[in-house]
Design a protein around this nucleic acid. Structure first.
Length: 742
DNA sequence: TCGACGATCGTTTTT
DNA sequence: CGATCGTCGA
C-alpha cells in the first residue's frame, strides 16, 4: 500500500496498528487523512474485517466526513464498518440489548427541552418554585452525574468522582430517572451511562462486544467526557487496540463535560501507550501558525506541541481597532467587498464571533453591502414548535408510554381537553400506576368506571377522538405503511394542518412550510433507509439534526459564512475576520469570573479561531459596544496582547481616515516581545474565590441556619442561593444580606 | 384559553 | 436592548 502522501509521523500513526496509541494532532495537520489511511491500512494490509472495527466520534459532522472519505478510499466493501457517534452507537446497542435494562427497544430519547419539562414537573411536585431553584441547576446536576458515567446504584467505590447522595438534588435525580424509565425513555447522557451500566452488570454482554471490536478508534478525543472514556476503556480492555486522536489545544467543550484529563492522563491509564504528535501544519501561513502558537503556549493545561509549517511566511495579521461595533461590522463588509473585487470568492471568507447575538450587526452590514452570506447555527429546525408538536405525535405512535409527548399534544390543536382534564387523568395514572395512555384508553373503553372523576360527555368524546387518531396511526405503523403516509395522516387527522390553514397569518404559513419540509425529510429518510420505521426516523432526527438542517452541500455557493467560533471548529477559510475581541466579550465576562481554567478554555477558543485562517487573518475590536442595552468600553482582549507584535500590523479606524498603519501606537503600552507575560493585566484580580463557597454553612439573622447551594457573581458582589433548615430556598445579594459563615 | 403586560436576565452547543 | 417567561385579567 502506498503511503507516500504521508509524512513520517503520519506514517507511524498508520502503521503502528496494535496496542494503545494517542495521536495529538494539531490544527491543520492532516488528521482526517491520517485516520482514513489508518483504517484503510487495517482493512487492506492487516486484513481486519470491517465488522471488527469501530470508529467513534463526538459529532455527526466528523463521523460523516470520515465515512465519506473512507468510502472514497477503501476498495473492499466497507458496509459493515461502524463509523458513528458515541450517542448513536449507544442507542443502537441499547435497542439490541434493551431487555437487559428493562427498557423496550422502541424507547424515546428526550432532548434538552423535554428534560427540562420533566425537571419542572418534579420541582412543582415538591412545591419548589422555579424562582428558588432554576430547572437548569437541577439539569446541570443530573448532566454532571451522567457525564461521569453515573447511574443509580452504581458502585462508585473505585471511581474517580464523588456523589453527594444527601444533596437534595440527588433525590430529584433519582426521581428524574424513575420518571424517564416509566416513559420508556432516556436522555442523551443516559444513552452513554446505560451502556456503561449494561457492561458493568452483564459481563457476558461486554465480552461479546469486546470480542467483536478488535480495533477501536476515537476521533475528537478532546471533546469526550469521562463517561465516554469509561465506555471506550471497557471495550478496549480485551484487545488493547485503542487509538485516540485529539488536540488538547482545541478542547472547547469542557463546559459541556469534555474532560481534558482524558488526554492528560491517557499515558497513566495505558502504561505502554505510544504517543504521537502531528505537528506539521498544512493549512495556514507561517505567520499565522507562529502567532497562534505563541498564544496557546501560555496555557498550562496541555501536553505541549510545537506546530510548524513549510508554508510561506505570508501576510501579517491585521489587528483593527474600531470606534464602535457598527464601524467594525462596516469594516468587515467593506473588506470583503474589496477582496471580492480582487477576484476572491465569498465562500473563502468567514466572520467569527464569540456569541450568536453578535451576528445581528454583521448581518445588517453585509445585507446593506449586498454581500451574500449565510449564518451557521442559530435557531434549530427541530426546535420549532410545530415540528416538536408533530414529532410528539409520532413519538406517541412509536412509544405510547411517552406521557410527556401525550400531554404536549393532547390538546394541540385545541380539542377541548384542557388543563383540568389532563390533571385529572394524570392523577388517575399515578393512583393506578399506569401510563397516561393506558388511563385514557380505559376511559374511552369503559367510561362508566370513571364516574368519580366527572368528565363531561364532550371531554369523553374528545378523548375518544384523540385515541382514534393515535390508534389509526399505530395500526398503519404496524402494517408497515409508508412513513410519509402516516405523517400526512397525523398531520391532517389531528386537525393540525387545518388549524394553521385557518389562521391565515404570515407565521402560520411559515409553520406550514416547515411541516412540509419535515414531510420531505421523512420521505428522504425512508428512501435512504430501507426497512426502517418511524422509530428509526425519530432516533435519527434526535441524534442528528442535520437531517433536516439546510442541505449544506448545496448551500455554499459563493456566500460568506458567519458563525460562532465554536461553530468554526474543523473548518478552514482563506480569509478570516475574528470580531469582538474585547475583554468581557472574548474572553467572556462569565469566564473572567470563573478563573484560570475558564480563561484557558477561552484561549483555546482564540487559538481555534486563529488557526482556521489560511491566508489572511483580521482581528477586530471596538472601543465601544452596545452590550445589554448599554454602551460599554471594555478595552481590547488580553489575547491580542499575547500575540508577539512582529506578527501583526495595527490599524486604527476613525472618522473614515486610516490614521495609523504602523504598530507604533501599540508599542507605547505594550511590551515588544511579551516574554514576561502580559504587561498590564486587565483581568479581574486572580479571583479570590467567593467568600460563600457552595456547600458551606451560614446563619441568616432572620431565617436561621442554612446551606449554600450556589454562589454566582464576582467575589464581594455575589448572589448566593441558600437552602434553610425549614426547606425554604432563598437568593440574596451576599453583601446586603445579614449572613455569617459557620 | 388566550393574549397582553411586566419583570428578568442575559456564553459557547452537540448529542 | 430584546427575547423569554410567568402572571394575571378578560
Amino acid at each position: 500500500m502506498n503511503l507516500d502522501h504521508l509524512n513520517l509521523q503520519q506514517k507511524e500513526a498508520v502503521q503502528n496498528t496494535d496496542g494503545p496509541m494517542m495521536i495529538l494532532a494539531g490544527a491543520g495537520s492532516g488528521k482526517t487523512r491520517t485516520l482514513v489511511t489508518r483504517i484503510t491500512y487495517l482493512l487492506e494490509e492487516k486484513h481486519v474485517s470491517p465488522f471488527q472495527l469501530l470508529a467513534l466520534t463526538f459529532s455527526n459532522k466528523a463521523a460523516k466526513e470520515m465515512r465519506d472519505r473512507i468510502s472514497r478510499t477503501v476498495s473492499c466493501d466497507a458496509g459493515a464498518l461502524q463509523v458513528t457517534t458515541f450517542h448513536s452507537f449507544c442507542a443502537r446497542s441499547l435497542r439490541n440489548e434493551a431487555q437487559y435494562l428493562g427498557l423496550s427497544k422502541n424507547f424515546t430519547i428526550y432532548d434538552t427541552s423535554e428534560q427540562k419539562a420533566v425537571v419542572k414537573k418534579i420541582l412543582s411536585r415538591r412545591g419548589i418554585n422555579i424562582k428558588e431553584v432554576s430547572p437548569f441547576e437541577v439539569m446541570y446536576f443530573i448532566e454532571d452525574l451522567k457525564n461521569h458515567g453515573h447511574y443509580p446504584d452504581r458502585d462508585i467505590s473505585e471511581k474517580d468522582y464523588e456523589v453527594e447522595k444527601d444533596d437534595p438534588f440527588y433525590d430529584m435525580y433519582l426521581e428524574y430517572e424513575r420518571e424517564l424509565h416509566k416513559a420508556n425513555a432516556t436522555d442523551f447522557g443516559g444513552l452513554i451511562t446505560a451502556v456503561i451500566q449494561l457492561y458493568e452488570l452483564f459481563p457476558d454482554v461486554l465480552k461479546r462486544y469486546q470480542e467483536r471490536f478488535k480495533y477501536l478508534l476515537v476521533d475528537e478525543y478532546q471533546d469526550t467526557n469521562r463517561a465516554q472514556f469509561d465506555l471506550v476503556t471497557k471495550l478496549a480492555k480485551l484487545n488493547k487496540n485503542i487509538c485516540v486522536v485529539g488536540d488538547e489545544d482545541q478542547s472547547i467543550y469542557s463546559w459541556r463535560g469534555a474532560d481534558i484529563r482524558n488526554i492528560l492522563d491517557f499515558e497513566s491509564v495505558y502504561k505502554d501507550a505510544q504517543i504521537l504528535k502531528l505537528e506539521q501544519n498544512y493549512r495556514s501561513s507561517k505567520n499565522i501558525i507562529d502567532a497562534a502558537g505563541a498564544v496557546i503556549s501560555r496555557n498550562t493545561q496541555r501536553k505541549g506541541k510545537d506546530m510548524w509549517t513549510d508554508n510561506p511566511e505570508g501576510e501579517s495579521i491585521e489587528i483593527v481597532e474600531c470606534h464602535n461595533d457598527k464601524e467594525e461590522a462596516q469594516f468587515v463588509a467593506e473588506g470583503m467587498k474589496e477582496l471580492a473585487a480582487g477576484g476572491e470568492s465569498y465562500d473563502e471568507m468567514a466572520v467569527f464571533y464569540r456569541t450568536n447575538s453578535q451576528s445581528r450587526l454583521l448581518e445588517d452590514a453585509l445585507r446593506t453591502a449586498n454581500i451574500p452570506y449565510r449564518v451557521i447555527g442559530g435557531i434549530k429546525f427541530y426546535e420549532r414548535k410545530e415540528i416538536k408538536d408533530l414529532l410528539a405525535y409520532i413519538r406517541v405512535v412509536v412509544n405510547d408510554k411517552d406521557s410527556l409527548a401525550i400531554s404536549r399534544i393532547i390538546n394541540v390543536p385545541a380539542r377541548g381537553i384542557g388543563a383540568t382534564t389532563l390533571r385529572k387523568v394524570e392523577e388517575e395514572a399515578v393512583k393506578t400506576e399506569s401510563t397516561l395512555w393506558e388511563v385514557i384508553q380505559r376511559i374511552v373503553d369503559n367510561p362508566e368506571d370513571f364516574k368519580h372523576i366527572r368528565l363531561t360527555a364532550r371531554v369523553k368524546s374528545a378523548l375518544s377522538h384523540f385515541t382514534q387518531i393515535i390508534l389509526d396511526a399505530k395500526q398503519a405503523n404496524e402494517n408497515k405503511d409508508s412513513q410519509q403516509d402516516i405523517f400526512e395522516k397525523l398531520l391532517h387527522e389531528s386537525g393540525y394542518w387545518e388549524m394553521l390553514r385557518a389562521a391565515k397569518d404570515y407565521e402560520s404559513e411559515a409553520r406550514m412550510e416547515n411541516l412540509q419540509e419535515l414531510g420531505t425529510a421523512i420521505t428522504q429518510f425512508e428512501e435512504a433507509n430501507e426497512g426502517t420505521d418511524l422509530g428509526g426516523f425519530l432516533e435519527t432526527i434526535t441524534l442528528d439534526n442535520s437531517v433536516v438542517a439546510e442541505d449544506e452541500e448545496t448551500a455554499n455557493q459563493g456566500e460568506v459564512s458567519l458563525m460562532t467560533i465554536h461553530g468554526s471548529k474543523g473548518l478552514e477559510f482563506h480569509y478570516v475576520y475574528l470580531t469582538g475581541t474585547e475583554e468581557n466579550v472574548f474572553p467572556s465576562y462569565k469566564s473572567m469570573e470563573d478563573g484560570d481554567t475558564a480563561i484557558e478554555e477561552e484561549r483555546r477558543l482564540f487559538y481555534v479561531a486563529m488557526t482556521r485562517a489560511m491566508k489572511r487573518l483580521y482581528i477586530t475590536f471596538a472601543q465601544g459596544r452596545m452590550l445589554f442595552g448599554q454602551l460599554r468600553f471594555n478595552g481590547h482582549s488580553r489575547f491580542i496582547q499575547e500575540i508577539p507584535n512582529k506578527y501583526y500590523m495595527w490599524r486604527k479606524l476613525g472618522g473614515g481616515t486610516q490614521a495609523n498603519t504602523s504598530k507604533d501606537d501599540w508599542d507605547d503600552f505594550a511590551d515588544p516581545d511579551f516574554d514576561e507575560g502580559p504587561v498590564y493585566s486587565i483581568s479581574t484580580a486572580p479571583a479570590p474565590k467567593t467568600a460563600f463557597p457552595k456547600g458551606s454553612k451560614v446563619v441568616h439573622s432572620l431565617y436561621g441556619e442554612g446551606k449554600i447551594l450556589a454562589s454566582e457573581g464576582p467575589s464581594g458582589d455575589e448572589r448566593v442561593t441558600i437552602m434553610f433548615k425549614d426547606g425554604a430556598r432563598k437568593k440574596f445579594m451576599a453583601k446586603f444580606a445579614p449572613l455569617t459563615l459557620i
